[in-house]
């Protein structure tokens, strides 16, 4: 779900490309439904963010006010509430520490992806994003295949060298949880929890934009 990084929080990433922590946590039930949680933690860069928010513009671009950011994020979460197959949307923002969390339940991965795509298109002034047409999360026959949409590669090229350096200090954590026990998985950097029901991949945002395949994984569940 790194896609969120580049659509829902583009401003936070590119303008506040400081020490950022991103946690993408997805729970998949046996029937393909589940819960998606996404957290962006910028608490290590509070001073920097407050400094930037005090400016009118940065690098020729208008810096939104805190209230504009609040409004935008609430608008996005409200928009997500209206999407088919999405329920229990919970958005929480801590503006003292700059931590943003969104959580929702979904009835199927395909509806979750549709919802994200629709939000992204809306944010893209109504213009379709062909890269999002391809499914990047599928769950079939007790195996989950996850990848990163190509759009992230395109966006990654736009990050300048200096910002990219700053992203090295951040962290990206991707957790996939299941009701069943995990049998095997393809990503060598991934780690299995002791209860064998969760798989975690940790990297930093810089490495991820250099190599979006870092969090790609095919996870096979044990047959009961």
């Amino acid at each position: 779900m790194k896609f969120f990084t580049y659509t829902i929080f583009p401003f936070l990433i590119f303008a506040f490309s400081a020490c950022i922590e991103i946690i993408d946590d997805i729970t998949i039930n046996d029937d393909g439904s589940g819960t998606f949680k996404y957290t962006v933690n910028l608490s290590s860069s509070k001073v920097k963010i407050n400094s930037i928010l005090a400016l009118d513009s940065l690098d020729g671009k208008k810096v939104p006010s805190l209230s504009e950011i609040q409004e935008k994020l609430h608008e996005l979460s409200n928009s997500l509430r209206t999407k088919e197959g999405i329920s229990n949307v919970d958005f929480h923002a801590d503006y003292d520490n700059f931590i943003f969390k969104i959580k929702c339940d979904f009835t199927s991965l395909s509806l979750l992806q549709n919802a994200v795509e629709e939000l992204a298109i809306k944010e893209n002034k109504g213009v379709a994003i062909p890269e999002l047409k391809k499914e990047w999360l599928t769950f079939e026959n007790d195996s989950l295949v996850r990848s990163v949409p190509k759009i992230t590669l395109i966006k990654a090229k736009k990050i300048n060298k200096r910002d990219a350096e700053l992203l090295k200090e951040g962290s990206y954590t991707s957790i996939t949880r299941f009701q069943k026990v995990v049998d095997t998985f393809s990503n060598n950097s991934a780690k299995l929890s002791k209860n064998r029901k969760a798989v975690m991949v940790r990297t930093n945002p810089y490495l991820l934009i250099q190599n979006p395949q870092l969090v790609d994984n095919v996870i096979y569940l044990e047959e009961e």
């Binding site: 922590e21 946690i23 946590d25 957290t39 933690n41 608490s43 290590s44 860069s45 509070k46 001073v47 920097k48 520490n97 931590i99 954590t173 957790i175 949880r177 929890s193 002791k194 209860n195 029901k197 969760a198 975690m200």
Partner: peptide, 22 residues
Amino acid sequence: KITYDYDEENFESTRKEVESEE
């Protein structure tokens, strides 16, 4: 700053406030 620690058992996270410098 806020950091998250993960339980090895099930990767559930715990929020932790730690000192930092900026």
